[in-house]
Computed example of a mutant assay.
Amino acid sequence: MPAPALPSVTEQAERLIALGATGPLDPDALRKEAAALPDRPGLLVVGGARPSELAPLLRRADRPGFVVEDMTDVDDFAPVAGVPDAAVWLLTDPDRGDHLTNASPAEADARFAAEGRTPMLLTEGVQWVLQVPEVLERNFCFMTIGSRLRKPSGRFDARTPAVWISGGTGRDGRDRKDAPKIGWCWWNNRHTWLGFGSGAGRVVPGHHG
Protein backbone atom coordinates (compact mmCIF):
# COMPACT_ATOMS: atom_id res chain seq x y z
CA MET A 1 0.00 0.00 0.00
CA PRO A 2 1.44 3.44 -0.92
CA ALA A 3 2.44 5.67 1.98
CA PRO A 4 -0.01 8.48 2.81
CA ALA A 5 0.78 11.72 1.01
CA LEU A 6 2.74 14.27 2.97
CA PRO A 7 1.77 17.95 3.17
CA SER A 8 4.06 20.60 1.70
CA VAL A 9 7.31 21.33 3.54
CA THR A 10 5.85 24.64 4.75
CA GLU A 11 2.80 22.89 6.16
CA GLN A 12 5.00 20.26 7.81
CA ALA A 13 7.07 22.97 9.48
CA GLU A 14 3.93 24.63 10.82
CA ARG A 15 2.65 21.33 12.16
CA LEU A 16 5.90 20.70 14.03
CA ILE A 17 5.71 24.21 15.46
CA ALA A 18 2.11 23.71 16.56
CA LEU A 19 3.04 20.41 18.24
CA GLY A 20 6.11 21.85 19.96
CA ALA A 21 8.25 19.35 18.04
CA THR A 22 10.94 21.65 16.66
CA GLY A 23 13.82 20.07 18.58
CA PRO A 24 16.70 22.50 19.11
CA LEU A 25 15.27 25.04 16.64
CA ASP A 26 12.97 27.90 17.53
CA PRO A 27 9.91 28.37 15.28
CA ASP A 28 11.43 31.15 13.18
CA ALA A 29 14.63 29.18 12.62
CA LEU A 30 12.64 26.15 11.51
CA ARG A 31 10.60 28.24 9.09
CA LYS A 32 13.79 29.71 7.62
CA GLU A 33 15.48 26.31 7.25
CA ALA A 34 12.35 24.73 5.76
CA ALA A 35 12.00 27.57 3.24
CA ALA A 36 15.52 26.82 1.96
CA LEU A 37 14.63 23.21 1.13
CA PRO A 38 13.76 22.36 -2.48
CA ASP A 39 10.09 22.46 -3.42
CA ARG A 40 9.65 18.73 -3.89
CA PRO A 41 7.80 15.93 -2.08
CA GLY A 42 9.43 14.49 1.02
CA LEU A 43 9.50 14.38 4.79
CA LEU A 44 10.80 17.43 6.63
CA VAL A 45 13.21 16.15 9.29
CA VAL A 46 14.60 18.17 12.20
CA GLY A 47 18.02 16.65 12.72
CA GLY A 48 18.43 17.35 16.43
CA ALA A 49 14.98 16.22 17.56
CA ARG A 50 15.12 13.60 20.32
CA PRO A 51 12.82 10.55 20.10
CA SER A 52 12.13 10.63 23.84
CA GLU A 53 10.74 14.17 23.51
CA LEU A 54 8.80 13.46 20.33
CA ALA A 55 7.15 10.23 21.52
CA PRO A 56 4.55 11.86 23.84
CA LEU A 57 3.49 14.15 20.99
CA LEU A 58 2.39 11.20 18.87
CA ARG A 59 -1.34 10.50 18.90
CA ARG A 60 -3.51 7.56 17.90
CA ALA A 61 -7.03 6.76 19.13
CA ASP A 62 -6.72 9.86 21.34
CA ARG A 63 -3.83 8.28 23.21
CA PRO A 64 -0.34 9.80 23.45
CA GLY A 65 2.71 7.92 22.26
CA PHE A 66 5.37 6.52 24.57
CA VAL A 67 8.72 4.76 24.74
CA VAL A 68 8.82 1.26 26.20
CA GLU A 69 10.10 1.12 29.76
CA ASP A 70 13.21 -0.91 28.96
CA MET A 71 14.46 1.59 26.39
CA THR A 72 15.60 4.43 28.62
CA ASP A 73 18.57 4.87 26.28
CA VAL A 74 16.36 5.57 23.24
CA ASP A 75 18.09 8.86 22.46
CA ASP A 76 21.46 7.08 22.26
CA PHE A 77 20.42 5.15 19.15
CA ALA A 78 22.45 7.04 16.56
CA PRO A 79 22.70 6.94 12.76
CA VAL A 80 24.63 3.93 11.49
CA ALA A 81 25.86 5.94 8.49
CA GLY A 82 26.50 9.61 8.08
CA VAL A 83 23.59 12.04 7.89
CA PRO A 84 23.63 15.58 6.52
CA ASP A 85 25.45 18.21 8.55
CA ALA A 86 22.35 20.36 8.55
CA ALA A 87 19.67 21.48 11.00
CA VAL A 88 16.96 20.04 8.76
CA TRP A 89 16.74 17.90 5.66
CA LEU A 90 14.21 16.35 3.34
CA LEU A 91 13.86 12.55 3.33
CA THR A 92 12.58 11.78 -0.15
CA ASP A 93 10.14 8.99 -1.00
CA PRO A 94 9.60 7.68 2.55
CA ASP A 95 8.30 4.12 2.51
CA ARG A 96 7.07 1.79 5.26
CA GLY A 97 8.57 -1.31 3.67
CA ASP A 98 5.52 -3.55 3.85
CA HIS A 99 7.09 -5.81 1.22
CA LEU A 100 9.84 -6.64 3.73
CA THR A 101 7.59 -7.89 6.52
CA ASN A 102 8.91 -11.14 7.97
CA ALA A 103 12.47 -10.25 6.98
CA SER A 104 15.06 -9.78 9.68
CA PRO A 105 16.68 -6.36 10.08
CA ALA A 106 19.93 -7.82 8.76
CA GLU A 107 18.14 -9.07 5.64
CA ALA A 108 16.31 -5.79 5.12
CA ASP A 109 19.58 -3.87 5.45
CA ALA A 110 21.10 -5.99 2.68
CA ARG A 111 18.05 -5.37 0.48
CA PHE A 112 18.27 -1.61 0.98
CA ALA A 113 21.96 -1.65 0.07
CA ALA A 114 21.21 -3.60 -3.13
CA GLU A 115 18.32 -1.29 -4.06
CA GLY A 116 20.09 1.97 -3.22
CA ARG A 117 17.54 2.83 -0.51
CA THR A 118 18.40 4.68 2.70
CA PRO A 119 17.33 2.98 5.97
CA MET A 120 15.16 5.32 8.00
CA LEU A 121 16.43 6.77 11.27
CA LEU A 122 14.30 6.46 14.39
CA THR A 123 13.87 10.23 14.59
CA GLU A 124 12.77 10.25 10.93
CA GLY A 125 10.25 7.50 11.56
CA VAL A 126 8.78 9.29 14.56
CA GLN A 127 8.54 12.60 12.70
CA TRP A 128 6.85 10.81 9.81
CA VAL A 129 4.15 9.53 12.17
CA LEU A 130 3.82 13.03 13.64
CA GLN A 131 3.02 14.36 10.18
CA VAL A 132 0.76 11.53 8.99
CA PRO A 133 -0.43 9.42 11.96
CA GLU A 134 -2.20 7.01 9.58
CA VAL A 135 1.24 5.69 8.57
CA LEU A 136 0.87 3.42 11.61
CA GLU A 137 -1.70 0.72 10.91
CA ARG A 138 -2.47 -2.32 12.99
CA ASN A 139 -0.34 -5.20 11.62
CA PHE A 140 1.54 -2.80 9.30
CA CYS A 141 4.15 -0.86 11.29
CA PHE A 142 7.90 -0.48 10.77
CA MET A 143 11.42 -0.73 12.11
CA THR A 144 13.98 2.07 11.73
CA ILE A 145 17.26 0.23 11.22
CA GLY A 146 19.16 3.39 10.24
CA SER A 147 19.58 4.00 13.99
CA ARG A 148 21.47 1.63 16.25
CA LEU A 149 23.19 1.77 19.62
CA ARG A 150 26.93 1.23 19.64
CA LYS A 151 28.43 -0.37 22.74
CA PRO A 152 31.69 0.81 24.37
CA SER A 153 33.34 -2.21 22.71
CA GLY A 154 32.45 -0.77 19.31
CA ARG A 155 29.92 -3.48 18.52
CA PHE A 156 26.28 -2.74 17.93
CA ASP A 157 23.65 -3.51 20.53
CA ALA A 158 21.36 -6.28 19.23
CA ARG A 159 18.24 -4.15 19.76
CA THR A 160 16.71 -2.47 16.73
CA PRO A 161 14.30 0.47 17.18
CA ALA A 162 10.79 0.31 15.77
CA VAL A 163 7.55 2.28 15.81
CA TRP A 164 4.30 0.37 16.21
CA ILE A 165 0.97 0.24 18.04
CA SER A 166 0.62 -0.92 21.62
CA GLY A 167 -1.69 -3.84 22.33
CA GLY A 168 -2.12 -2.63 25.90
CA THR A 169 -0.57 -5.76 27.36
CA GLY A 170 2.24 -6.34 29.83
CA ARG A 171 4.10 -3.31 31.10
CA ASP A 172 2.42 -1.04 28.54
CA GLY A 173 -0.82 -1.18 30.55
CA ARG A 174 -4.39 -1.29 29.30
CA ASP A 175 -4.66 2.51 29.27
CA ARG A 176 -2.07 2.54 26.49
CA LYS A 177 -3.91 0.14 24.18
CA ASP A 178 -3.81 1.46 20.58
CA ALA A 179 -1.25 4.16 21.47
CA PRO A 180 1.78 4.77 19.22
CA LYS A 181 4.81 3.07 20.71
CA ILE A 182 8.58 3.29 20.29
CA GLY A 183 10.15 -0.04 21.12
CA TRP A 184 12.73 -2.46 19.88
CA CYS A 185 13.22 -5.88 18.29
CA TRP A 186 16.27 -8.14 17.98
CA TRP A 187 18.54 -7.63 14.96
CA ASN A 188 18.15 -11.17 13.63
CA ASN A 189 14.46 -11.73 14.44
CA ARG A 190 11.54 -11.62 12.00
CA HIS A 191 8.08 -10.14 12.54
CA THR A 192 5.14 -10.58 10.18
CA TRP A 193 3.69 -7.21 11.21
CA LEU A 194 6.79 -5.01 10.93
CA GLY A 195 8.17 -3.61 7.71
CA PHE A 196 11.26 -1.41 7.43
CA GLY A 197 11.17 2.34 6.94
CA SER A 198 13.40 3.80 4.24
CA GLY A 199 13.81 6.74 1.91
CA ALA A 200 15.32 7.39 -1.51
CA GLY A 201 17.80 9.87 -0.06
CA ARG A 202 18.30 13.03 2.00
CA VAL A 203 18.35 16.54 0.57
CA VAL A 204 19.64 19.55 2.50
CA PRO A 205 18.63 23.24 2.35
CA GLY A 206 20.06 25.06 -0.63
CA HIS A 207 20.28 21.91 -2.76
CA HIS A 208 17.98 22.23 -5.75
CA GLY A 209 19.36 19.54 -8.03
Rank of each mutant, 00 (worst) to 15 (best):
G82T: 09
D62C: 11
D76G: 10
V46R: 09
W89T: 01
E69P: 10
P51H: 11
V67Y: 00
K32L: 03
L19V: 06
R31M: 04
A29Y: 01
A29F: 02
A18N: 02
D73C: 08
P27V: 06
R40D: 13
L90F: 07
A81Y: 06
L91Q: 04
V46W: 07
G48N: 13
L30Y: 07
R60N: 03
P84N: 06
M71N: 05
S52D: 03
D28K: 15
A78Y: 08
G48H: 12
P64N: 09
G23A: 11
L54K: 04
D73N: 09
E33C: 12
R31N: 00
P27T: 10
L90S: 07
W89M: 03
D62G: 14
D28P: 07
R60P: 04
V83G: 03
P84G: 09
W89A: 05
D26P: 06
P84S: 05
D26Y: 03
L54A: 03
G20D: 12
L44M: 14
D75V: 02
D95R: 09
F66M: 13
S52Q: 05
V83M: 06
G65K: 06
A34K: 00
P38G: 03
D75M: 05
P27Q: 05
L43H: 06
L16D: 06
V68D: 14
